[in-house]
Structures are given as C-alpha cells and as structure tokens.
Amino acid sequence: MSLPLFALFLAAFAFGTTEFVIAGILPDVAQGLGVSIPFAGYLVSGYALGIAVGGPFLTMATRHVSRRTILIALTIAFCFGQIACALAPSFVAMLAFRVATAIAHGAYFGIAMVVAVGLVPPAFRGRAVSVILAGLTVSNIIGVPAGAAIGGLWGWRTTFWAMTLVGVLALIAIWALIPQTKAEPQQAGHLGREVRVLGRQQVWTSLIIMLALMIGQMVPFTYITPLLREVTGLDGMIIPWVLLLNGVGATLGVFIGGRLSDWKLMPALIVMLGIQAAILVILYLVSPYPLLMTATIFVWGALNFAIGAPVQARILMWTADAPALASSLIPSGFNIGIAIAAVIGAGLLEGGYGYRSLPVLGAVALALACLVAIFSAAHEKRSGAALPQAAFT
C-alpha cells in the first residue's frame, strides 16, 4: 500500500469506526443522554440518512474545490464532529452532530475513491478502491471493539475523544501525503453532464447491483445475533467471535475483490454474485449447525466485500469524465440499501417469518443482481462502448 493510499485508508477507518461504534456504546449513550435504548437507535439511522442525502449535495457543492483541499476540510469536519459528540449536552444535540459528521462521511468516500483511482495506473484501479473499502472493514474488526472497550472503561464520551485523536492522525497523513490536485474547471452545463453519465447502463445497473448486494447482505446481518442465538444455538459469549471471523473474512474479501476487478471485472463480478446467492442458500441450510454455520459466515463475509470492490470500480471507470455526482452516490447507495434491508427484515419478522428465513430473501436479491450483471455485460459487449477518459486529474 502506497503512503498516499494509506492516508486515505486511515481517514476511511476513522469515518467507518465512528459510524458503527455507536452500536457498541448505545446503552451507555442512552443512559447518559436520558433516553431509551430504542430511541437512541435514531443515532444510527440519522447517521445513515446524513450519508445518503447530505453526502451527494456536499460533493456537488464543492466540486470546484481541489480534491486534496476538500479531503482536508472533510477530515477537519470529522474531528470537530467527534469533539462535539463528546461534549453533547442532549440527545437532540448529539443527533445533530452525528448527522453533520455523516454528511462529511458521505462526501469523503466518494471523493477519496476518485482520488485513489487517480493515484494508480488504470490496471490497478480495483485495488485502489479496495484500499478505501478496507478502511471500513478494519474499522469493524479493530475500531469498533476498541471504541466500545474504551467506552466501557472510561465512559462513552471518551470514545469520541479517542476518535478525535484518530481523526487528527488521518488529517496529518492526508496533509502530508496526498499530492496537490487541480480544481474542477468551471464549465457550462457541467451539472447536466454529471447527471447524464448516470444514464450510462454500466452506471445505473451497477447502482442496482449495489442496492441488491446491500439488501442481500444486511437483511440477514442486521439480525445475525438473534439468528445465531435462537436458530444456531450459540452462547452469547461466542457470537462476538463469530462476528469477528466474519469481519476477518470481509477484510480478506476486499483485497481479493480488488485484484479480481483488475483482472476480469465483469466475469469476476457475475461469478461472485452467483456464488454469493448460493452461499446464502447454504447459510439457510446449515443455520442449525454451529460449526458449519460459522464457516459459512466467514465465506459470506469475504464475498460481501469482495463484490463491493468491482461494483464501485465499475462506477468510477464509467464516470471518469464526470465523476463527482456518481462517486458521491456510492456511499449513498450503500446506506440506502442498509435502510431498505432493515425495513424489509423487520417486515418479514413482524409478518411471522422466523430469523432463518432472512438468508433466503438475501439469496433472491443476489440472484437478481447476478441477472442484472449478466444483462449489463452482454449489452456492453454488443455496444462496443469505450471507457471515458478523465476530464481532469
């Protein structure tokens, strides 16, 4: 990993940790702010909404600022957001500070991915994207457990002070290691061009695949703890280790997916989507058997993030001439998928279906994504379309 990519990775790790660490300290936050635990859960959904809605708007509003400058500004915003959360006097204030941080989060990932692919030759774009994704997976393996442990030992506010320190380190790294980039030139009709590139079938089909991937992943994963407890029969003390194994698989998958993207992007994507649909069927079949379930969850985690790299690399490749809006829709698409998955999963459970049914719905979503990928690849081959060239660097 080159030093500039490491700087982008470190900031991605910081943003990923602050998004997910709230789950590990939620009861303490709820008690400290005087609200119920379910009500405190709005801190999670509010963050996702900030990414999905605010990120694209901020990205477009700052498209005439050099990317290095906006990355620095977003990391500074992250640091101030963590300080504000550490000092938050009420739930409403905490929610507002979380949403503000999430807007910076949504803009950061879109811009960081554009910068990352610009730092490497075209043959290594997939691996560059995988480095940014690795920041999210490593945040779940290291950042979230560490943040929860810090909160348990010294109070939940200390968790956000620790996140501030991580943000400062990321800021220093970006300042020192990311090369100066040019601002996007002012051009008439620029916004229209940004919107038009979304009409390329390679782009909108990739966004559909992304949504289906997140639904297939998050419908079961949102309720993975009760699934493992009630269907698999695992002890509550064992479940965190199973989830850790899933996170390790996800981290390996990120780098595998990046390499496959640089090798044969669409064939690799189609095959992985098909395999993942089959894995979710296997997850349903082996869910009563602890050892088989644990092994399957490891493979499932690896494939989830292996698929993410080629999907995102494809969007960036086919919007290289107008990347701002499309790149900002990547984190938005993921978080919209997370929100939809939570609603669908809750609807199934409230409708009388058990936890074991959730992987089946995930398999259907991945099978549909595989069909969309096949259609997209066939259409692209027939059209003979050439990749667009970057308008600026």
Rank of each mutant, 00 (worst) to 15 (best):
M237K: 15
F255Y: 05
S45G: 12
W154M: 03
I282Y: 14
I224K: 03
A123V: 09
F20H: 12
A11P: 08
T18I: 01
A367L: 14
T75L: 02
I224H: 10
V53P: 06
P121M: 11
G54N: 10
G151E: 02
L291C: 05
F13R: 02
L5W: 11
L71K: 14
M210P: 09
T225I: 13
V203E: 00
G118P: 04
L280C: 13
R314D: 00
G147F: 10
L234K: 09
P4M: 07
V166C: 09
F255R: 01
L165S: 14
L227I: 13
T205C: 02
M94K: 13
V129G: 07
G253S: 00
S357M: 09
R63V: 09
L87P: 07
G135V: 01
V44F: 13
T225F: 15
L191H: 03
V29L: 15
M163W: 14
A322K: 03
V286T: 06
S36R: 15
I132M: 07
L316A: 13
I111T: 14
P121G: 14
G192T: 12
F57N: 03
G274T: 12
Y42P: 01
Q180Y: 07
G32H: 07
I141E: 03
I275P: 05
G247Q: 03
T296E: 01
G152C: 06
N335I: 06
S90H: 07
L153T: 13
R193T: 14
G362A: 09
V299L: 05
F305S: 07
A365I: 10
L58Y: 10
E184D: 01
V168I: 13
I178N: 12
P388G: 13
L245N: 11
Q217N: 12
T59R: 08
P185G: 10
P290R: 09
I103E: 04
R98D: 05
W241S: 08
L87E: 05
R63E: 08
I150S: 01
E350N: 15
G126P: 06
I174W: 07
N246A: 14
F375Y: 15
T62G: 06
E194V: 02
G354F: 08
V271W: 14
A96K: 06
L269D: 00
P226Y: 09
L366R: 09
V286A: 08
V286Y: 11
I239T: 10
G106R: 14
G151V: 09
A7C: 11
I37H: 07
L269E: 00
E350L: 08
I330D: 12
P288G: 07
L71D: 12
T62L: 03
F255W: 01
M210Q: 15
L269W: 00
L169V: 12
I174R: 10
I72L: 00
F334N: 01
F6G: 08
